[in-house]
């Protein structure tokens, strides 16, 4: 049963076609990635979902059309968007505060999660005092405590160095196994998509269309060193090939 379903979504900015034809679905408790080249229109897709922009086509959540009132998504923007003037604790409770949750209650909800997110002891710090990886975890915590139906993550680890990114990917995979969030992740890191996802939609360059939908058959917990690593490597190579040679689209039509 799919929760989010997009059918033939299109979007143009003025004369610039950004999204040509996007159809995708995300099931309950499923981790789905959107993989595409830079500038393809991935962030634009999230803008449509969060209601910041309007496009054409159908966008359904639990079978009902998305409107501006139904707030189904907890959105993590491409940059961490932490407020420099708020301490970490107050940054992570922001979403609850906007929902009208009382400060005490909001804090009580966030505090038990701080350790899991590697932020224990840093709740009184300002964002500028944190490392890149910690900032991303704080932003992620701010996103998940909103307890929305679904997470929208826009390149959460794009700005991190390779080592921190790998560590964060492992951490997120582990977190996801605990919490089983319904999640849609944007990335242009092929390895990240394969490592984290149940399914991957590969997008073309702008104007974006879905080149291929790929189910990742790897067992969880994902292990970057074990027997499945070879299978993962083969999948990564295949996806890279699709991204770099997009013209002879073999698996077209996946409605």
């Amino acid at each position: 049963m799919s929760r989010l379903e997009l059918r033939h979504v299109r979007k143009a900015f003025g004369g610039l076609d950004v999204l040509a034809d996007i159809s995708l679905s995300v099931g309950a408790g499923e981790f789905v990635s959107i993989l595409g080249p830079s500038g393809a229109g991935k962030s634009t897709l999230f803008q449509l979902l969060t209601g910041a922009e309007h496009g054409e086509g159908e966008m359904l959540f639990d079978g009902m059309p998305l409107d501006d009132h139904g707030r189904h998504f907890a959105f993590m923007p491409q940059r961490d968007a932490l407020m420099p003037w708020r301490r970490i604790l107050d940054n992570t409770t922001l979403g609850l505060e906007v929902q009208g949750v009382r400060r005490q209650v909001a804090r009580a909800r966030v505090v038990p999660l701080l350790a899991e997110f590697g932020l224990a002891g840093f709740e009184r710090h300002f964002p500028a005092q944190l490392s890149g990886g910690m900032r991303q975890r704080a932003a992620l915590l701010r996103t998940v405590v909103q307890e929305r139906d679904m997470l929208l993550l826009d390149e959460p680890f794009g700005a991190l160095d390779a080592l921190t990114r790998a560590a964060m990917q492992r951490w997120l995979e582990q977190m996801w196994r605990h919490h089983r969030w319904t999640a849609l992740l944007i990335t242009h890191d092929v390895r990240e998509a394969v490592f984290l996802s149940d399914r991957i939609y590969v997008l073309s360059a702008r104007p974006a269309r879905v080149l291929r939908e790929i189910t990742v058959p790897l067992p969880r917990p994902r292990d970057p060193t074990g027997a499945a690593a070879q299978q993962a490597g083969a999948l990564e190579a295949e996806i890279l090939d699709i991204l770099l040679n997009p013209q002879p689209s073999k698996g077209h039509d996946h409605d």
Binding site: R71, M76, P77, G95, V98, Q99
Partner: peptide, 8 residues
Amino acid sequence: QMLRAMGA
């Protein structure tokens, strides 16, 4: 953008 998505 994030605040508006939160419902602000």
